[in-house]
Design a protein around this nucleic acid. Structure first.
Length: 811
RNA sequence: GCGAAAGUGGCGGAACUGGCAGACGCGCUAGACUUAGGAUCUAGUGGCUCACGCCGUGGGGGUUCGAGUCCCCCCUUUCGCACCA
């Protein structure tokens, strides 16, 4: 083999073998270096394998991890498998392949592909959420939550996916459809396990402040939690027959209580039946039926207000006024109390509704324009508000709440959009919920720690029953057991956990993956929290919210000593592809537009693909795949290889000023741009460096070659290792230190100054760097193309920006 | 409807706190070397113009000696949220 030709196919497997057999990527506990934990969102090992879009998400964090290692950090960069979930289960149903078998096969393929990335994953810490040694702890956390009162079982209308045949969480419903399969979600009354995530609502909100996360993600989480301060106020409803019921409402604007001219209940409100008068019953029933039918379907597009009068009235506690009670679908049962006081003068929705049905609009906050044309939402001076008149609205708000509290008719309160987490799934391929139902008198009993894990038994049929019971319910000798408490007959819980369960804490397990007596060891805790977490923005709410919740809980029970798991978050953009449609679309197997990385690795090598994945565009944005783009990077690596080889061993003892400058600029550019994760521009820097250094036709010194190889190593690790060895160094290059630059050397001796006349570029001149203004002006005036414009004109003003620009203003 | 991000050559994209717009790469054109070229090398490549030059960062205004960058208005695309009281 002629070493002068770049043959990635020959060198790459060799170095991967070297790294593996020398355990170079294993993160060691008890290391004097500072730790750095760089985490990729672990994949679901699907049957279709990796495409170049997935690759992109793994290359950036690996590049970063290798950089951190070269900077002297003890880096933990692990990988594992989020392997519970419906695709494997669906394969089981359709093809009769046991999910464990299919999952194992997929993992093997995924692992092979991931290894071709050449990443420094520590495979000795590989985890798999379906491994009983792993899910023992997933179950253990559930038991701890149960003991802490955070896990409870309740009957409630849950989101039901008719295709997955399982209940799902609010977070799993996207635009009224199942997040996993896209089927429209319906409601079903089911006895479900719930997690009291709402108890952590405030902490989940305030914790965001200190995180170095994209603002977009923080905003999404903030909106999801949806905290509103306001008041709960009790009105008294009076049905047509005279019976009275308290009717609670939530409002963020108690200062507008005097402007309430009617009330609205959600159609599902439990009091609807009792409050509907006989003469209104037909209309009310019809309306409820109508709303039921159009639920979730067209509601998004619906703008006009609909509703119906119940025939009942309510007494406003602040002024004892009698106002009508309506039913309308713009009030949601799931938010607040499911009923509102309507203040049309100061709320857009109430305003529209009042206009539609001719209800009174009473101004109670002085509006500059009046409320005849539009509602006034802002703050102002209170009017028509009894004793509170003339108060500023913000002040009146607290005053009214205080008055209500004194009278026991209301209280200041906080409302959240966040709901408790529906944690039950009526599916097979998940962690069994480790609870036993004692038939005698112990009720719900958690499986004792020594009996964990509760292993997932084999079943004959994976098909969900659709009745709200999981397939596990059919295995009688598994279901029937003894109560751990009293020893009496008992039944196991047959629901399983959602896929999120295993992924809500996996980052902890990497720290001590083999510990069998604790979730995480004391040594292991030193790795945490995660310093950089990289993954797609599609997990901005679900996964990240759940993982933060789990971490906060584990903090509270002293399993870990921090309460935010991910200090810095980076969202990678997707790879899109212009397919047959002519439009840019997401790469997916179903669209038939996937580009397989295996073929590209075979043809151009892993290093070329790594660099192209980074070069393709700004990492935080989606990028369009270009089939020829990789050619340029491949050419660059070939040229760079050649350049190192041609001069190998013939290095001059000291570099020329120009080479020195190019070297220091390269180090500076790469380092600074790495810190900002601007990988796409770093690849450009390498190319520019090579273009300059080869066009100079002079041999580089040894130190320049070394610096070049070290800074390129995070990007093209095999390439760098091979040349490092070929140039007479001991492997591995990753034992080296990241080079420094000297600012003084990065500066050029001469600079090009742009000369403008009245702001228009007329010439460029070459002057010594940092030349005094007079010299530059003098040189510029002598330049013929400048002189031409100055002739016969008077220079009124001269603007000089050092080493950059000179602008003559002439009259 | 609300919120966020984006809009720069044929294409992907550069441009640090306002200072030579188009770096780097793809593609394309011409040439060299070749039996050959989807290899390699050299030169060129924003538009208009023979040229001096003029015009150019979604559109329109503005600030400034100077604007892709700052301010105001509008358009388009993408992504969130969507009656949250």
């Amino acid at each position: 083999m002629s070493a002068e030709n770049y043959r990635p196919g020959q060198i790459e497997p060799k170095w991967r073998e070297y790294w593996a057999s020398n355990r170079l990527h294993e993160a060691k506990d008890n290391d004097p270096r500072a730790k750095y934990y760089c985490l990729d969102m672990f994949p679901y090992p699907s049957g279709s394998g990796l495409h170049v879009g997935h690759w992109r998400s793994y290359v950036l964090p690996d590049c970063w991890s290798r950089y951190k290692r070269l900077q002297g950090f003890n880096v933990l960069h692990p990988m594992g498998w989020d392997a519970f979930g419906s695709p494997a289960e669906n394969d089981a149903i359709q093809k009769g392949i046991h999910p464990a078998v299919g999952t194992k096969r997929n993992i093997e393929n995924f692992k092979r592909q991931l290894q071709e990335i050449g990443a420094m994953y520590d495979w000795s810490r590989e985890i798999n959420t379906t491994d009983p040694d792993y899910y023992k702890w997933t179950q253990w956390i559930f038991v701890m939550m149960f003991n802490a009162g955070l896990a409870y079982k309740t009957f409630m209308p849950v989101n039901w996916c008719p295709s997955c045949k399982t209940g799902i969480a609010n977070e799993d419903v996207v635009n009224g459809r199942c997040e996993r399969c896209g089927t429209e979600v319906t409601k079903k009354e089911l006895n479900q396990w719930m997690l009291r995530i709402t108890k952590y609502a405030d902490r989940l909100l305030s914790g965001l402040e200190k995180l170095d996360w994209p603002e977009k993600v923080k905003t999404m989480q903030t909106n999801w939690i949806g905290r509103s301060e306001g008041a709960e106020v009790t009105f008294t409803s009076i049905a047509a027959d005279g019976t009275e019921h308290p009717l609670k409402i939530f409002t963020t604007r108690p200062d507008t209580l005097f402007g309430a001219t009617y009330m609205v209940m959600a159609p599902e409100h439990p009091l609807v039946k009792e409050l509907t008068s006989p003469d209104r019953a037909a209309a009310v029933d019809a309306y409820i039926e109508q709303v039921k039918n159009e639920r979730d379907v067209d509601r998004a597009a619906k703008t006009e207000k609909t509703g119906v009068f119940t025939g009942a009235f309510a007494i406003n506690p602040v002024n004892n006024e009698k106002i009508p009670i309506w039913i309308a679908d713009y009030v949601l049962m799931a938010y607040g109390t499911g009923a509102i006081m309507a203040v049309p003068a100061h709320d857009e929705r109430d305003y529209e509704f009042a206009k539609t049905f001719g209800l009174e609009i009473r101004e109670v906050i002085s509006s500059p324009k009046g409320v005849a044309e539009e509602p006034f939402i802002g703050e102002g001076t209170m009017i028509n508000s009894g004793p509170f008149t003339a108060m500023p609205s913000a002040e009146g708000r607290t005053a009214i709440v205080r008055r209500l509290e004194e009278k026991g008719l209301g209280r200041g309160t906080v409302n959240y959009k966040l709901r408790d987490w529906v944690f039950s799934r009526q599916r097979y391929w998940g962690e069994p919920i480790p609870i036993i139902h004692c038939s005698i008198n112990c009720g719900l009993v958690p499986v004792p720690e020594e009996d964990l894990p509760v292993r997932l038994p084999d079943v004959e049929r994976y098909q969900p029953t659709g009745t709200g019971e999981s397939p596990l319910a059919s295995i009688h000798d598994w279901v029937n057991t003894r109560c751990p408490n009293c020893g009496g007959p008992a039944k196991r819980e047959t629901d399983t956990m959602p896929q999120w369960a295993g992924s809500s804490w996996y980052f902890l397990r990497y720290a001590s993956p083999h510990a069998d007596d604790v979730l995480i060891t004391e040594k292991g805790k030193e790795w945490l929290p995660v310093d950089l977490y990289v993954g797609g923005v599609e997990h901005a709410i679900l996964h990240l919210l759940y993982a933060r919740f789990y971490t906060m809980f584990l903090h509270d029970i002293r399993v870990v000593d921090f309460d935010e798991p991910f200090l810095r978050l980076f969202n990678q953009g997707m790879i899109t592809y212009v397919g047959k449609s002519g439009k840019s679309e997401k790469m997916s197997k179903s669209k038939g537009n996937v580009v397989n990385p295996d073929d590209l690795v075979r043809e151009f090598g892993c290093d070329s693909l790594r660099m192209y994945e980074l070069f393709v565009g700004p990492p935080e944005l989606d990028a369009e795949w270009n089939d020829h783009g990789i050619d340029g990077v491949y050419r660059f690596l070939k040229r760079a290889w050649h350049w190192v080889w041609v001069h190998n061993g013939k290095w001059p003892t000291s570099p020329t000023k120009e080479i020195l400058q190019l070297r220091h600029r390269l180090i500076k550019d790469v380092t600074e741009r790495l810190e900002g994760l601007r990988m796409n521009t770093i690849v450009s820097s390498f190319m520019e460096f090579l273009n300059h250094v080869t066009s100079r036709n002079e041999a580089p010194d040894k130190e320049t070659v070394e610096a070049f190889l070290i800074v390129i190593a995070p990007f093209a690790p095999h390439f760098a290792e091979e040349l490092w060895q070929q140039t007479g160094h001991q492997p591995s290059i990753f034992f080296e230190k990241w080079p420094c630059w000297n600012e003084a050397y990065t500066a050029a001796e001469t600079v090009t100054i742009a000369v403008q006349i009245n702001g228009k570029l007329r010439a460029t001149i070459l002057v010594p760097a940092d030349a005094p203004e007079e010299t530059v002006v003098e040189t510029a005036r002598k330049d013929p193309s400048v002189a031409r414009y100055l002739e016969g004109k008077q220079i009124r003003k001269t603007i000089y920006v050092k080493n950059r620009i000179l602008n003559f203003i002439v009259g």
